[in-house]
């Protein structure tokens, strides 16, 4: 089984709106893939379906051969675009929470990253800025030894200086068989680490290529191709 994620004719509607329109895609193991598209193109909807937080209106999705459920949740480490952390907890409480529920969570890794980003484990979430909370969340997610990382806008609210460290963090925690799917619309910062890209537009996949293919065929960076494809 070479694909970590497969979906067939995946569709999600909200009332009359088609958030995902008949998506069929295979996502291989061991790649860093950018899920790129403008706002409201269906990126978050897709990731939420992968995590079982939304129920598809049609079609099928499997992760590691399983439909979203308890088995896939062991394999997937998910960073949502929302802050899902309890405000009253300390960072150290969250770390023990993650260790309690995820067998693949590494405490050492988490404390090491906190230390490097200058976040004290004793701090309460309540006292933190939005950006710091996002960092904590990303640290928790990347401290797992998962097979598939689904990162929804991981660098959106983080300052450029920390972005580099975070991208390095993602890269250095990346084990060879794991796949990282990063959804974003800030492409230039993230382009250098991507192997493949998926362009989503109004719930449809309009492009699915490797970054090398794009550079060869289009003679362009992913960023400029994106600007061209999604020109308003």
């Amino acid at each position: 089984m070479s694909n970590i994620l497969e979906c067939r004719n995946l569709t999600k509607t909200f009332g009359a709106l088609k958030a995902l329109d008949n998506i069929t895609i295979d996502i291989p193991r061991g790649k860093i893939i950018g899920l790129l598209g403008p706002n409201a193109s269906g990126k978050t909807t897709f990731l939420k379906i992968c995590n079982g937080l939304l129920t598809p209106s049609g079609g099928e999705i499997t992760i590691g051969g399983f439909k979203p459920g308890i088995e896939t949740k062991k394999l997937v480490s998910y960073l949502p675009e929302k802050t899902y952390l309890n405000n009253w907890m300390k960072v150290s409480d969250l770390i023990s929470f993650f260790r309690d529920f995820y067998d693949d969570f590494s405490i050492d890794k988490a404390y090491d990253m906190l230390n490097k980003l200058g976040i004290s484990p004793k701090d309460r979430l309540k006292t933190m800025s939005k950006g710091t909370k996002e960092k904590v969340q990303l640290i928790l997610v990347m401290s797992r030894e998962a097979q598939l990382y689904l990162l929804d806008e991981p660098i959106g609210g983080v300052d450029p200086a920390s972005r580099d460290y975070i991208l390095d963090t993602i890269l250095s925690n990346y084990n060879e068989n794991a796949t990282i799917l990063i959804s974003t619309h800030i492409i230039s910062d993230i382009e250098k680490i991507l192997d493949e890209v998926i362009f989503l537009k109004q719930g449809k996949i309009i492009l699915n290529k490797t970054v090398d293919e794009i550079r060869e065929e289009n003679q362009k960076s992913v960023d400029s191709l994106f600007r061209e494809v999604f020109r308003c």
Partner: peptide, 13 residues
């Protein structure tokens, strides 16, 4: 609510 994003991604029935 938002915390459900964490609770429902735990490997728990």
């Amino acid at each position: 609510g938002d915390e459900g994003y964490l609770m429902f991604t735990l490997p728990v029935q």
